[in-house]
Design a protein around this nucleic acid. Sequence first.
DNA 1: AATATTTTTTAATCAAGCCTAAAAATTAAG
DNA 2: CTTAATTTTTAGGCTTGATTAAAAAATATT
Lengths: 221, 221
Amino acid sequence: MNISISQENYLKSILKLEASDGVATNQALAQNMESTPAAVTGMLRKLMKEGLIEYEAYHGARLTESGKHHALLTIRKHRLWEVFLVEKLNFPWDSVHSLAEELEHVGDEAFVNRLDEFLNHPVFDPHGDPIPDAKGVMRERPNLIPSNLAEVGDVFVVCGVVDSSSEFLRHLNQLGVKLGKSFQVYKRYAFDGSSEWKGNQGRLVTLSSHVSEKILIQLQS
Amino acid sequence: MNISISQENYLKSILKLEASDGVATNQALAQNMESTPAAVTGMLRKLMKEGLIEYEAYHGARLTESGKHHALLTIRKHRLWEVFLVEKLNFPWDSVHSLAEELEHVGDEAFVNRLDEFLNHPVFDPHGDPIPDAKGVMRERPNLIPSNLAEVGDVFVVCGVVDSSSEFLRHLNQLGVKLGKSFQVYKRYAFDGSSEWKGNQGRLVTLSSHVSEKILIQLQS
DNA sequence: AATATTTTTTAATCAAGCCTAAAAATTAAG
DNA sequence: CTTAATTTTTAGGCTTGATTAAAAAATATT
Ligand SMILES: [Mn+2]
Ligand SMILES: [Mn+2]
Ligand SMILES: [Mn+2]
Ligand SMILES: [Mn+2]
């Protein structure tokens, strides 16, 4: 009962789709995996046979306890490797995803737990996403909201992103927006929903609504 | 012109066989890769078509410059990961080989070079094997000899092993033989070629010829 | 040189994962 | 309720890297 790389990637996708849509449909998976519906059908049957998902034709797939556990452990590996790459190897946060995508399939639990210890049990990855613990329990992030919901005058800390693509993250680099940095909403333009933020040194940043929707923040009390 | 995991493993095997036998024969490769002669033939043709080896049927294979470069870079990755696993994650030296065997196929040159820097450019791996530099140049080890060639009275430092299997390394653990430790040959039994060594605290260790042949040492002037 | 032995190659199969195109099932619309 | 549109499955193929068994080629032996 060994899980292949491809199977692990499917499990991760199903977990994500289940969280957002309640169920992972064939179509959504095909898009997510950049594959075809026919290929998805074949894989779903395999995953069902191995007890990793429950699957009803035409009604989509859901992870079993076992499948969920494997998916969370894969995510744990992925995010711990991202922490390693950024903290220890000094990679920029916009260039670690694809490498972590490979590393997440290497090694067993003992290995990941040693990595976790070496990194001092980090709780969030470089993109602010929570790292599941050794038992596969995902820590919940406290009440983050998309930054476009903040009102003029609000002070907040940037805590996460909805989009971890290198294109988006490089854009944030150019704007000087990083995790942990705090800003105050300075203006909001009703016309296009764009906003202006004031940084700590008083520097102003302008963000399109498209961008600010993808930034997760925590309001300061 | 992407090199698969299997191809990288073949290149490593060919490099090793070329060093010991001058050429990598089909048969030797089949043994080394735990595969069959038929499978080897197929792979050698693929490697030749990609310009990684020169291959003449019935006369074996040799690496081209390109093939040699790839083989050495794979070995570089393997050994750097072993250093990481032992030095940073505190794995024992007898349990890192299989993990490194997976990790050596992940990531590109930039990645390995950052790992190298993080580890402070180590020159030897945990088994005393030299780590090729960023250009793929193997550093040569200075005049190591198998420990069975040392004579009674000789003082030496353990610098390497010929066999990196976990069985052998665990046996050395039990005997208290580690890299960097120094001993003096105390006795040699002509009957079976076994030897007795005296350690620093005067403790005696007995080694079969089978074992002492696999330990590489440097004689103290 | 002729035969026997070893080594290598060919040929036919397999399994995992993917693909495209056609058929079938389901859901949506009239 | 019947037809149309969408979604999913089946069927047939492809690629990579294996396997076994038989054929062919190269060595070794007499
Ligand atoms: Mn990632
Ligand atoms: Mn991440
Ligand atoms: Mn090794
Ligand atoms: Mn080693």
